[in-house]
């Protein structure tokens, strides 16, 4: 049993980083000239989701395996943007705001890099309007 954490503060510093290799994707801008609303920031996006965070991580990434990985599909594909490359070629992973979707272990190409399980019953993501 852990304290309930409703959709708040995951490690937010990493989120301001918006990877955009194509270079033309909208990031956080001010209201456009057309008067349309700007895309929201990634933190704001994740703040719309409730996570009842458990104190134990349900997904563990073995960063040593990631050093040998050339594809790094997790970084692009994880819808919650939880995989962050580190300067030494490893991966920093935070489990708190995870959708428990399974994308990461399916796209991961290094056997054993990701140990994946569901969080303890009653914890993790809780959808309301999906």
């Amino acid at each position: 049993m852990s304290a309930t954490n409703s959709s708040t503060n995951g490690p937010s510093d990493q989120r301001s980083r918006t990877s955009d290799p194509a270079g033309d994707m909208p990031t956080s801008r001010t209201v456009e000239a057309s008067g349309r609303y700007a895309e929201m920031s990634f933190e704001a996006r994740m703040d719309t989701v409730e996570f009842r965070v458990h104190e134990r991580a349900h997904i563990v990434v073995d960063g040593r395996k990631c050093v040998d990985c050339s594809v790094r599909g997790c970084i692009t594909a994880c819808p919650a943007n939880l995989f962050v490359p580190t300067a030494d070629g490893g991966i920093l992973f935070n489990y708190e705001q995870c959708f428990e979707c399974g994308t990461c272990y399916m796209v991961c190409n290094e056997e054993g890099a990701i140990s994946w399980s569901y969080p303890e019953g009653g914890h993790g993501v809780v959808f309301h309007a999906s």
Binding site: M1, T4, E50, H128
Partner: peptide, 26 residues
């Protein structure tokens, strides 16, 4: 635990399945 306040109208809305006992009550 999660109340949505419409920023324009100030209307307060609750989502379904959003009520709990607080951590301190537990």
């Amino acid at each position: 635990t999660h109340v949505h306040i419409d920023p324009l109208s100030g209307v307060v809305a609750e989502r379904s399945h959003d009520n709990q006992f607080s951590a301190s009550d537990h």
